[in-house]
Amino acid sequence: MIITMADRDRVPVSLRRRIEDLAQRWPHGMHVRHVNGWTGKVVCDVPGNVHGGLTGGPDAHCLTGSRSSDAAVCVEAVIGGYPCTAWYRPAVLVPAGKGGPRPAPKPIPKPAPAARERKRQWRAA
Results as ranks from 00 to 15, higher is better:
Asn36Glu: 13
Asn36Val: 07
Gly37Ser: 06
Trp38Ile: 06
Trp38Asp: 05
Trp38Cys: 04
Trp38Arg: 02
Trp38Gly: 03
Thr39Lys: 09
Thr39Arg: 10
Thr39Leu: 02
Gly40His: 06
Gly40Asp: 08
Lys41Pro: 00
Lys41Phe: 02
Val42Asp: 05
Val42Thr: 07
Val43Gly: 06
Val43Glu: 12
Val43Met: 10
Cys44Ser: 11
Cys44Ile: 00
Asp45Ile: 00
Asp45Trp: 02
Val46His: 01
Val46Met: 03
Val46Asn: 01
Val46Tyr: 01
Val46Gly: 01
Val46Phe: 01
Gly48Tyr: 01
Gly48Arg: 02
Asn49Trp: 03
Asn49Gly: 11
Asn49Gln: 08
Val50Thr: 03
Val50Gln: 03
Val50Cys: 07
His51Gln: 06
His51Gly: 05
His51Asp: 07
Gly52Thr: 01
Gly52Ser: 01
Gly52Lys: 02
Gly52Ile: 00
Gly52Glu: 04
Gly52His: 01
Leu54Thr: 10
Thr55Val: 04
Thr55Tyr: 02
Thr55Glu: 06
Gly56His: 01
Gly57Val: 04
Gly57Ile: 02
Pro58Thr: 04
Asp59Gln: 10
Asp59Cys: 15
Asp59Gly: 14
Asp59Tyr: 01
Ala60Arg: 10
Ala60Ser: 15
Ala60Pro: 04
His61Ile: 03
Cys62His: 01
Cys62Phe: 02
Leu63Cys: 11
Thr64Ala: 05
Thr64Met: 11
Thr64Arg: 03
Gly65Asn: 10
Gly65His: 10
Ser66Ile: 09
Ser66Cys: 05
Arg67Thr: 14
Arg67Gly: 11
Arg67Leu: 12
Arg67His: 10
Ser68Asn: 14
Ser69Met: 08
Ser69His: 10
Asp70Asn: 13
Asp70Val: 02
Asp70His: 12
Asp70Pro: 00
Ala71Asn: 06
Ala71Lys: 14
Ala71Ser: 15
Ala71Pro: 00
Ala72Thr: 04
Val73Asp: 07
Val75Cys: 12
Val75Glu: 14
Val75Met: 14
Val75Gln: 13
Glu76Tyr: 11
Glu76Asn: 09
Ala77Asp: 08
Ala77Gly: 08
Ala77Ile: 09
Ala77Glu: 10
Ala77His: 09
Val78Tyr: 07
Val78Ile: 15
Ile79Gly: 03
Ile79Ser: 08
Gly80Gln: 10
Gly81Val: 10
Gly81Pro: 05
Gly81Ala: 09
Gly81Lys: 09
Tyr82Met: 12
Tyr82Pro: 00
Tyr82Gln: 15
Pro83Ala: 15
Pro83Val: 13
Cys84Asp: 12
Cys84Asn: 11
Cys84Ser: 14
Thr85Pro: 03
Thr85His: 06
Thr85Val: 15
Thr85Met: 14
